[in-house]
Each structure stands twice: as C-alpha cells, then as structure tokens.
Design a protein around this nucleic acid. Sequence first.
DNA 1: TGAATAGTGTCTTTAAGACACTATTCA
DNA 2: TGAATAGTGTCTTAAAGACACTATTCA
Lengths: 219, 219
Amino acid sequence: MLSDYPQPLVMVDTALFTILNEGLCLILAQRQEPPESGHLALPGGFVHVQEDADTEDAARRVIRAKIGFDAPYLEQLYTFSGANRDSRGWSISVAYYALVPASLLDQAQVAETFSVKNLPKLPFDHDQIVAKAIERLQSKSTYSSLPAFLLPEVFTLNDLHVIYQQTQDVRLDKASFRHKIMEQDIIEPIPGYFRTGAHRPAQLYRLTHRVLTSFERKI
Amino acid sequence: MLSDYPQPLVMVDTALFTILNEGLCLILAQRQEPPESGHLALPGGFVHVQEDADTEDAARRVIRAKIGFDAPYLEQLYTFSGANRDSRGWSISVAYYALVPASLLDQAQVAETFSVKNLPKLPFDHDQIVAKAIERLQSKSTYSSLPAFLLPEVFTLNDLHVIYQQTQDVRLDKASFRHKIMEQDIIEPIPGYFRTGAHRPAQLYRLTHRVLTSFERKI
DNA sequence: TGAATAGTGTCTTTAAGACACTATTCA
DNA sequence: TGAATAGTGTCTTAAAGACACTATTCA
C-alpha cells in the first residue's frame, strides 16, 4: 500500500573533510548533469532504493564514487528540505559529513580540495550544508576524539595536537593538551615504535578503540 | 525534470515531551490507519508537498493536529530510513522532538501521556526514535536553557531547578544550580512579582531571550 | 513555634590555562 | 654546538560539588 500523496525527491549530499597544509579542506565534485552541471558542488546523488539499504548506505556509495574508498568517519549531519531548494521539485537532502586522512587522498590521487576559508560559490543550499558541517565538526572536536579520524592510524602526540588546532582553528597549550588527552584514555603508545628525525624520537600512538569517544569536558 | 529512480516514501515523526508529576513523559497517538492501526505510536504522517514548506513545517502540522497548538520548542532530531522500517516500502522518516509545558496540555485537555520509564511497545522503529530523542534531550539539558521550554513563561528558580533534575533524572545541588543559572544570563527576575504560599515568597522569572541558549560548561 | 519553601556563604576538590623548563636527536 | 621536535613540572586562576547556614511566610 502506497502513499496517496506525491512524494518528494530524496537525495544525499556529503561534506568530505580533510586537513592539508592550508588547514581544513573540503572535497568538491564537478557536477556531470543538470541542474548546475559543470559547477563545483558537494558530492551527492539520489537515493537508489533498489541498491541502498538506507541513506547512510547511499552516502557511502556517493563517497566511494568520489574518492574510491570508504571514509574512516561518517556521520549524519542534518536533513534539508523544501519546495525551492532544487529546481527539479520538492526535495529532501539527507546530508552527511565524513573525515578523510590526507594520506589516503594522496594515494588515491584525489584532487579538487578547497580550503574552507576560500570556497567557491556553491549551488543549491550547499553553502548552508557546509556551514552546518563545519559547525558540527568544530564543536564535536572540542569534546571528542573526532579529529583523530583525520590522521593515519599511526601518529605522534604532536600530529594529534596540530590536527586538533587545525580543525578548531585555535591555539591549544601543548602541555595541557597532552595531559588531557592522556587522561581520556583514547590513544595508546605502540611499544617500541618511534618517529625519528633531526630531533628527539617521538612515540607513536594509535586509537585504543576504533570508534568516536566523547569526553566529559573540553580539550 | 524528475528523477529516473523510484522515490522513497517520506514522512515525519515527532517525539513530544512534557513533564508531569511522574517525571519526563511522551505524548503518543492512537494510529487511525494501517499499518499498525489502533496501536499507540509517535504522532506522524506523510509530508504533503502541496501544503508543507519543508519537513519542519510538516512536523508543526502533525503537532498541531495532535495537541491543537504549536510546541514552544521544536528541533530536528535525526532521519531514519531503509527498506524495512515500514511495511509500505522503502521509507524516510525525518524525526523531530518538541517540548510542551504541562500547563498548556491541561488547558487543551490532551491525555495519552506516558512516562518514558514505562512506555508501551511501539511500532516501526519508534523505540529507536524515542531512545535518540531522550538522549538528545538529556544531553542538551546539561549545557543549555532547553528544559526551560518545559515550563510556563513565568516560573520560580525552584521550578527551574526541579525541571532540570527531572529532564536529566539526576540530583543537582541547589546552591550550585542557582549560582550557575544566574551566571548564564538566560533568565531575568520580573520586578515585584512573587509566588506566595505558606513559605517565603519566591521571585518569579522569565527567559531573557525567547530562544535556546547554550552554556560554555555544564550545569 | 514549626513546617515549608526561598535563598546565601564558604570550603574543598578538581580542572583549565599559562609558562618555563628539561630531553634527545642530527647536521 | 645549535636547531629542531619531544616531553614534563608547577603555579595561578576558575569552576564544580558539597554542605551548612539564614530568611520569610502561614497555620
């Protein structure tokens, strides 16, 4: 038994974040089809009910099509809807955001990254989606292990310190940061593994659990 | 130009919270139509693209149909989706939660309230929606003015203290609570207005801004 | 006066933030 | 030795939490 009502169009859009030298970046896609074909936009597409188990599955499919592999972190952001957000009709976009380590992008040779401080004009309501995604990422970075998903599986405490600062665009005291992270029990040293260089060797760490962990207080 | 793909069904479901003597309660509706007709469930329904400006507007329509007026606080919760969550086909439910002061429900003579500690079995994935709504409500209550939307516009500091404790299901120290609330600048005394009784008169307060305000730290 | 709710002062513990210091490696 | 990054100790300030106290009304 189906609905008596005409149904909205249902799509997913994804905000893919990575950290490059210039700080927090987004991966955009050149649209292949109208509307707005040729323009840069968030990677997205219609839900395929034959193929996708749910909208998160649809987001994973869109992400794999763009970067070739699954993002280490994926979370539903918000659902945008309305009669006028897409010229094709009353539509729903279930938006997701994902974190991708830059090291994986290098390997897969993904280009089209844009600093969030210098984004091109985006079509539809993608500006709004991006704003909300950045807000969520920054807010969640203050009280969870979220930024660690922007790093490779193995990293130094300094890497972590830098990535926390870049996601939030703030300066964090080194000593305080280290104390607090070590109290949170989210990372563990890999015994005997160090990163060497023209300096004192740095202990290498990995996440103790593979999943997002929230803290009682702010970092 | 329409999508080449069959579209999912799109509905909204709402978790309506209130506080009664027994603590945090949900307003449920008896379903009028199949599937699950006759059973208690979250108030919900299909999006009407002719009528609703967006999904939030659809949620407002559903809530008005249930309680007769707009809830003082309404927020998008999460979007649930998949091939099997509803027997009618691949569906999307954009879930919202709302806060309604018990005083307004009394006036409108709305019954069908159930303590969240003693809910009936709910159909579809409504258990999951409720769990997520309670989690969001409780978490957001620790760092925002959210619980104030469960009170009438005028209230005492004690009312606020009680409602913060009931939403979070914890005990909060009276003195600390008062200090912290007053520092947050979210409420203002109404000069000359007191609630009287067989005890010292209690200063009456109202929200300084009508909107949700977040704190730097926890209450 | 005692029951009831309103409202405050202060002490202890814990966390946040700042900053200076020591450590190890390589060129 | 000096440049570079790694890592720690400690002091000050602020917030969280506990608890005891005082205040005002009415029956």
